[in-house]
Nucleic acid binder design. Structure first.
Lengths: 197, 197, 197, 197
DNA sequence: CATGAATGAGTTTTCATTCAT
DNA sequence: TATGAATGAAAACTCATTCAT
C-alpha cells in the first residue's frame, strides 16, 4: 500500500486546518486541533507548514484565487451583453460560496485582526476587488449603462451586500438557491428596493 | 485631590480596552495592553471586568444600544413621509458610525467567532434588526411603496451594504461626510446601480 | 446607638474567620470571605490582625487554651479516685468538642503544613499534651494502676483514638452523647477491645 | 541513550510532587517546585497531570490501594487463629507506613480539606475501612471474642489510635520498629491501658 | 476607627514550536 | 518522512496587603 504523497498530506492538513478554523476561529483553534483532524502527529504539521499562520494564509490564498477565477472583466465586444456577463459573474461567485461554505466564513469573517501580514493580504484582496468593480462602474457610467454617483460608496454597498448575502446564505438565513439569489441581487442592482413612483 | 469614581475608572478601562483592541485586534490584545493604556495595575482590571471577553462584550453592548437608539420604526401617521423617515434613520446611523470609528471597526468587523456567547448576542442583534427591516419592507410592499422580491435577500443586501459603507467610511476608503453617504445609500435603495434602460 | 467596642469587633472577626476556615480550609479561605462573614470592609480586618496567619493563630490559641482548661492533672490526694478524675477529664474534652464542633475540625485537622510557625505551635501543643499524658501514665505505672508498655506508643494510641472519636462525633459518624462517648472511651482504656479469655 | 517512557516520567513527577508536598505541604507547594524537583519544564507537568490536585490525588490513590492490600478479612476457617490474623494485618500496615514515611505524612495528615473530591475519596476509603472493621467486630462479638460496646466508637478509637501511631512513628516520636509497634497495638486492643484491678 | 479601591507579586495554565528517536 | 515528548515563553488570573479618604 503506497504512502501518501506530499501533496495529499498537505491537502489533508489544509482541510483539517480549514475545519478547525471554521469551528473555533483562527485564534482559538490549536495546532493540536488541526493534527487531530488530519490524524497525524504534531511534528508532521511543521514538515508541511512553517507555522499556524502559514496554513491560514495558504487557505486564504486558495480561496481568493478561486474567487478571482469567478470574476471575469466585462467585455463589450463579447456576444453576451454586459448585464448578462455581470449576471454570470455574480452567479459563479454565489455558486462557489454555496459549494464551499466553510471557506466563506473563514475569509469573509474571521480573517481580520490576526496579524498585520494577514490583514494586509485580505485588505489587498478587497482593495483589488473594489478597484475592479470601481473600474467597471466607471466604464459603465461612461457608456451610460450605470447611473451617476460616488463610485466608492456604490462599490462599498455592492460588495457589502454581496458579502452579507453569501454569509447569510451559508448560514441558512436566506434561501440557498444560486439562481434565485443571483436574480435577487440583479434586481437590487437594477432597481434598488423602492418601487418606481 | 479626589479619587476616581467607579464609573470613571470603568470608563477609562473601557476606553483603554477599545484602543488596545483597535490597535491589535481582540485576539492579540492582552489584558496587559489594556491596563497599560489605562495606567492601572493588572489586578485593577479584574475589579471591573471578569476577563478580556467581558470588556469586549461591554463595548459591543454599548455600541449596539446606541445603534438601536438610532433606528425608529417607520410610522405612516407621522407627518414626514416614510422615505424621509428612512433617510433620517440611515443618517443617524451613519453619523454615529462616523462619531465612533473605533467601535465600528470592533463591533462590525472583529466581533464574530470570538466566543459563542458574544456571537449569540451579535446574532440576536442582527436578527432583531433584520426582522424589523423585513417587517417594514412587508408593510412597504403591501402599500406598493416597495417592489416585490425575496425580502430576506433584500434585507441582507441592504444591511450588508450599509455595514460595508460604514466600515469603509471609518477606514477612510470612502468619503466621510454623513450627508453625502446617506444620500448615496438612499439613491441605491431607490434605484439600484444600473441606469434606467 | 453605641459603636462596637474593639473587643466585640475582634470577636466578630474571629468568629467570621473560624467559619470561613471551617468551610474552605485555611489555604482556600480568603480575607474576603472573612470580612464578608463579619460584614466589615477589607481594610478593617488589618486593624485587628496583622495578617491572615494571625487570625488563624489566635483561633488555635483560643482553642488550645480551652482544651488545656479541660485537662486537670490527676491528684492522688483528691477525694475522687484517679479513674474518676480521668473520666472527668475526658468528659470535659468530649463536651467541649461537641459544643464547639467547628473548632475541632480546625485545630485537629486543618492546621498542618500551613506555615512553619503554625506547625510549630500545634506541634508544641500536641507535644505538651503527650508529655502530660506520658507523665501521668508513668505515675500510674509506678503505682501499679497502669499496665507496663512503651509509653510513647500508648500515648499515641490514646491521643489518636480520642482525636478520631471527637472528629467522628462532630462529623456525626458516631453518636453525639458526651456521656456515652466518655463511657466507651473509658471501657477501651480499661480493657481494650478483646474479651477476657 | 533512550528517552524515558511515559511511565517513568510519570513516576518521576509523582516522586517529585511527593517530595515537594512533604517539604512545603500541599497548599504551599507550587507546580514550579514539583517540576524543579523532577528537573523538567513547567509544561511537562501538564502533560501528565491536569493540575496540582491531580498529582496529589494520584499519590493518595496509590497509597490507599497499598493500604487496602495490607488488610485481609479475618477468616475463621483459616489455620491461624483470628488474633494472629489481626496481628498480621496490623503488622503489614505498620511496615508499609514505615517503608513510605513521606506518603503517610501526606495521606494521613495533609489530605483533608483540600478539595471536596479528594475529601470524598478519603472519606469513602475510611468509611470502607470502618465498615470492614465494624463487621469484623460484630462477628467477634457474636463469637464472644470481642467485648460488648458501641462498635462505631470502638472502631473510631482503634482507627484513630492506629493512624496516630503511624504518623508519630513516621515523625520519629515513637520508636520505629514494626514488631514492637505492632505488639504494643495488640496489647492495647487486648487489654486497654489500665492494669487489671 | 472604618472604608474599599488599588496594587503587584506570585501562580497557574496554555500552546506553538523543536528535536531526539 | 513521521513521531510525540518536551520545552518555555507568554498570558491569564488571584488575593494578601496597603493607603488615601
Amino acid at each position: 500500500m503506497s504512502r501518501k504523497t506530499k501533496q495529499e498530506r498537505r491537502r489533508e492538513l489544509l482541510d483539517a486546518a480549514r475545519d478547525a478554523f471554521v469551528v473555533k476561529g483562527f485564534a482559538a483553534a490549536t495546532v493540536d486541533d488541526i493534527v487531530a483532524n488530519a490524524d497525524v502527529a504534531r511534528g508532521t504539521f511543521y514538515l508541511y507548514f512553517s507555522d499556524k499562520r502559514a496554513v491560514f494564509e495558504a487557505l486564504v490564498d486558495e480561496f481568493l484565487a478561486r474567487i478571482e477565477a469567478c470574476v471575469k472583466s466585462i467585455d463589450l465586444s463579447h456576444p453576451d451583453p454586459p448585464v448578462v456577463q455581470l449576471n454570470a459573474n455574480i452567479r459563479r461567485i454565489v455558486e462557489l460560496a454555496l459549494a464551499e461554505p466553510a471557506i466563506v466564513k473563514l475569509a469573509l469573517h474571521d480573517a481580520t485582526g490576526l496579524d498585520p501580514e494577514l490583514d494586509e493580504k485580505l485588505h489587498g484582496f478587497y482593495e483589488g476587488l473594489r478597484d475592479l468593480i470601481d473600474e467597471s462602474l466607471g466604464q459603465g457610467q461612461a457608456l451610460g449603462m450605470v447611473r451617476a454617483g460616488d463610485r466608492r460608496v456604490m462599490v462599498a454597498i455592492g460588495l457589502g451586500g454581496l458579502k452579507e448575502v453569501l454569509v447569510d446564505a451559508v448560514a441558512g438565513h436566506v434561501e440557498r438557491d444560486a439562481n434565485a439569489i443571483t436574480e435577487e441581487i440583479m434586481r437590487f442592482l437594477a432597481g434598488g428596493l423602492l418601487a418606481r413612483g
